[in-house]
Amino acid sequence: MEKETLLWEVFVRSKNGLSHKHVGSIHASDKMMALNSARDTYTRRNEGISIWVVPSHLITASTSNDISDALANSENKIYRHPSFYDIPDDVGHM
């Protein structure tokens, strides 16, 4: 049976000043091929000025459980938000 080519995740920076954003994935056997294929697949209309490709298996991802624990933890810390503090209106903008 034929072997599947490597899967890569594609990230595109649409313009300077913005971060790279995940746009999808492609198959390629090496990094040059991955870059070329990402360009042809995801940037046919000037969508970006820079592309990152990362082999999907090298990305370590959280599970939804990890994340909900982390969120629960920060939900207790409402004092991290400016709206937690009562400042009289006559103090002016702060």
């Binding site: 599947e4 490597l6 899967l7 995740e9 999907s56 298996h57 990305i59 370590t60 991802a61």
Partner: peptide, 9 residues
């Protein structure tokens, strides 16, 4: 291979 990491469901 792709079932590790990112696509590990």
């Amino acid at each position: 291979m792709y079932t590790q990491g990112l696509l590990d469901h």
